[in-house]
Simulated scan of single mutants.
Amino acid sequence: MGYEEYTIDGLIPMFLSVCVYVLIRVVFILKNKKLDWHKEISRLLLILYLGVLVVVTLFPINIIIGEYEQRYREIVINLNPMQFFGLLDTDFSIIVRNLGGNLVMMIPFAILLPVNFRSMRKFGRVVMVVLATSIVIEVLQYIWQLTMLNVWRATDINDVILNVCGGVIGYALYYYIFRHVPFMKRFII
């Protein structure tokens, strides 16, 4: 007996989520008759960022129906911060993509959190949310490996460390840009 494999790309769920959000915001704006474009842009950027974050870190999802006994590859998990999965033996572009991508990935999040939520304007809170988000992503990637929803993901403590470093950089950028550039203050909710 064989199996069938289906792939779910993340762009369709992201597109539908953004459409639902925009529809809800339009109804809310029409009902209240108030509109602040700067704040709406801030909210929309946060929603778009979260959608891209989910697509980049958790998709595609592969669903296998039928009898399937063979794994594509073993489960990959790294809890040693000094081990980089042999990245030093690979192509330089892979090193840049992995290290740079994980560092840059949380910078927008750490900027958009304090812009959109008053309670997130403290450094420690932003770092804790970035840390928790990164850990949830890595745990979901591990679950994806176990359930074979995406066997090409790897769970790595270095991703969490780089994400938190990116969050620190993002908060520093928020603090400087939104506190010291008068035009940008309009976007803070």
Rank of each mutant, 00 (worst) to 15 (best):
L58N: 05
M14L: 04
E69A: 12
T7S: 13
I95T: 12
P114E: 13
I75W: 07
L113W: 04
P60H: 03
Q145V: 09
K34C: 04
G86N: 09
V139F: 11
L46E: 14
I77A: 14
Y175K: 15
W144T: 05
R121Q: 14
L103A: 03
I29A: 13
L149V: 05
G101R: 09
L44I: 03
V96A: 12
D156G: 04
Y68F: 11
P13S: 08
R25A: 15
V27F: 12
I177T: 13
L30M: 09
F123I: 11
V56W: 06
C165W: 10
P108A: 06
A154T: 12
I137Q: 00
F187D: 05
E74Q: 09
P182S: 10
I24W: 04
Q83R: 12
I64L: 05
Y171E: 04
Y142G: 15
I12A: 14
W37M: 01
I75E: 12
V126T: 02
S119H: 05
N80C: 08
Q141N: 09
T147F: 15
K31P: 03
Y3C: 06
G51E: 06
G167T: 05
K185M: 04
H180V: 02
V151F: 03
T90P: 09
R179T: 14
V26K: 11
R125A: 10
I188V: 13
V55C: 07
Y68T: 10
E5T: 11
G10A: 05
Q70G: 00
F178S: 05
R25P: 08
L45A: 11
S42Q: 01
N102S: 11
F59H: 08
V56I: 08
T57P: 03
L23P: 01
R43G: 05
Q145W: 10
V52H: 06
L50G: 07
I12C: 05
V22D: 00
I63W: 00
H180S: 08
T57Y: 01
I47Y: 05
I8M: 07
R121K: 09
H38C: 10
A154N: 08
V130P: 05
G170C: 02
R153G: 02
E67P: 00
V151N: 14
F178V: 01
N163M: 07
V139I: 11
L87V: 15
M128D: 09
I29P: 11
L58S: 03
I94T: 13
G100N: 07
L35G: 01
I64T: 15
T147W: 15
V54L: 08
F123Q: 14
V126P: 00
L140E: 07
M184P: 01
M105R: 10
Y21D: 09
L53N: 04
C165N: 01
R179Y: 10
F123E: 15
V27E: 01
L44K: 00
T133N: 07
I75F: 04
G66Y: 02
P60D: 06
G124F: 01
L48G: 06
W144Y: 15
N116H: 02
V55A: 06
V136W: 01
G166T: 08
T133Y: 00
I177L: 14
V168Y: 12
S134D: 10
I65R: 07
L99K: 13
T147A: 15
V181L: 06
L23Q: 08
L140V: 01
L11E: 15
L162A: 02
L87E: 03
V56D: 10
L87D: 07
V151W: 05
A172S: 06
I157D: 12
L162C: 01
N78M: 07
L140R: 04
I143P: 04
L50V: 08
